[in-house]
Simulated assay, not measured.
Amino acid sequence: MERPVFKRVVLKVSGEALAGQGGYGIEASVIASIAEQVKEVIELNVEVAIVVGGGNIWRGIAGTAKGIDRATADYMGMLATVMNSLALQDALEQIGVPTRVQTSIAMQQIAEPYIRRRAIRHLEKGRVVIFAAGTGNPFFSTDTTAALRAAEIEAEVILMAKNKVNGVYSADPFKDPTAEKYDQLTYMEVLNKNLGVMDATASSLCMDNNIPLIVFSITESGNIKRVILGERIGTIVKGSVN
């Protein structure tokens, strides 16, 4: 009998992952694959919350480079995460997975407001909860959203799903053939080596709240389930190495 090693998790999916090979927008086959992988985990009675980025539609930093006010550009990015969240909700519900989207910015016609206790109750009832619109504040990334929500709902781990790499490397493996893949790291090492796994705010929040992070590739079907069952794939980041 398959026994999951985690009961409640936060899955962080980058917006770029949803774009697939196209690099922009939402690739239907990719989002369908992610939904199927999440369903496999739900069937193990694991509670799953998801944070989705918006980089496949809009990136706040890129907007700032074009002369848009940083706060405005970040709010635009938050709206992009809502679009991705609704698309993922639709993909999950098409295969029979009950899902709720909760937003940090009020938009009651399309999603619930983020309410911690309500989110936890949805999870306890076997529903997937997708946290959209970041933290609701500019200057914070969706990585920080994942760390914050994980702490709030008392998730046991953050699963960071990547579409181009299968873990954390010492350098960009696409540019540096000598780049070394790490099996395990501490948050302090991530910060000191400037590895770019998460931004510094998110890393510090995870470290302070003792929330482990597992970085792995989502492009291989079944990887989310493998991580949930305790298979050592990707890179694990913790407060300390033991």
Score class of each variant (00 low, 15 high):
Leu229Arg: 09
Glu2Trp: 03
Arg232Ala: 14
Val129Thr: 13
Thr142Asp: 05
Pro4Thr: 02
Glu2Gln: 14
Lys66Ser: 13
Val168Gly: 05
Ala119Cys: 09
Tyr75Gln: 07
Ser33His: 05
Met83Lys: 02
Val227Tyr: 10
Glu40Asn: 14
Val241Tyr: 09
Leu11Thr: 05
Ile31Arg: 00
Ile236Trp: 01
Val82Gln: 13
Lys66Ile: 03
Ile42Leu: 08
Ser240Val: 13
Gly222Ser: 10
Val197Met: 12
Ala202Phe: 09
Leu213Asn: 13
Thr142Phe: 04
Ala62Met: 08
Thr72Trp: 05
Gly54Ser: 08
Ile31His: 01
Leu148Met: 15
Asp172Arg: 11
Ala151Arg: 10
Arg232Asn: 15
Lys164Asn: 14
Phe174Ile: 05
Gln37Lys: 03
Ala106Cys: 09
Asp183Met: 06
Arg118Asn: 11
Phe140Asp: 09
Thr235His: 03
Leu44Met: 10
Asn242Arg: 02
Lys175Gln: 14
Ile50Val: 15
Val52Asp: 03
Leu79Thr: 09
Thr145Met: 04
Gly167Tyr: 06
Ser141Val: 02
Trp58Asn: 02
Gly53Tyr: 05
Lys238His: 04
Ala73His: 08
Val165Ala: 09
Val227Arg: 10
Gly23Cys: 12
Asp199Tyr: 02
Ile110Leu: 14
Arg118Ser: 12
Ala151Lys: 13
Asp90Pro: 00
Asp199Asn: 03
Gly126Trp: 13
Arg149Lys: 12
Ile105His: 03
Arg116Thr: 14
Ala147Cys: 11
Pro98His: 11
Thr219Arg: 08
Tyr169Trp: 07
Ala171Thr: 13
Ile105Leu: 15
Lys181Tyr: 11
Lys225Thr: 13
Thr142Lys: 05
Gly67Arg: 07
Leu205Ser: 11
Lys193Phe: 11
Ser85Ala: 13
Val5Thr: 09
Ala80Asn: 08
Val30Ser: 07
Leu11Cys: 05
Gln21Lys: 15
Glu189Met: 13
Ala202Gln: 08
Thr186Met: 04
Met83Gln: 11
Ile120Phe: 06
Ile95Met: 00
Arg117His: 14
Leu148Arg: 10
Gly23Ser: 12
Pro138Leu: 04
Ile68His: 04
Ile214Gln: 14
Ala71Gln: 03
Asp199Pro: 01
Arg3Pro: 06
Thr81Ala: 02
Gly60Tyr: 00
Ile57Ala: 08
Trp58Cys: 08
Arg121Trp: 12
Arg149Cys: 09
Thr103Ile: 06
Pro138Thr: 04
Gly77Ala: 02
Gly77Asn: 06
Glu43Gln: 13
Glu231Ser: 02
Gly15Thr: 04
Gln102Thr: 05
Asp183Val: 07
Ala32Ile: 05
Asn45Ala: 12
Glu154Arg: 15
Glu152Ile: 00
Val5Glu: 09
Ala91Ser: 15
Arg3Val: 15
Ile61Ser: 01
Asp176Pro: 03
Pro98Asp: 14
Gly55Tyr: 02
Trp58Val: 13
Ser33Met: 07
Glu16Pro: 07
Lys7Met: 08
Ile50Trp: 00
Gln94Arg: 15
Val51Arg: 01
Gln89Lys: 15
Leu88Met: 12
Asp143Tyr: 04
Gly20Tyr: 00
Asp74Lys: 02
Asn192Ser: 06
Ala19Gln: 04
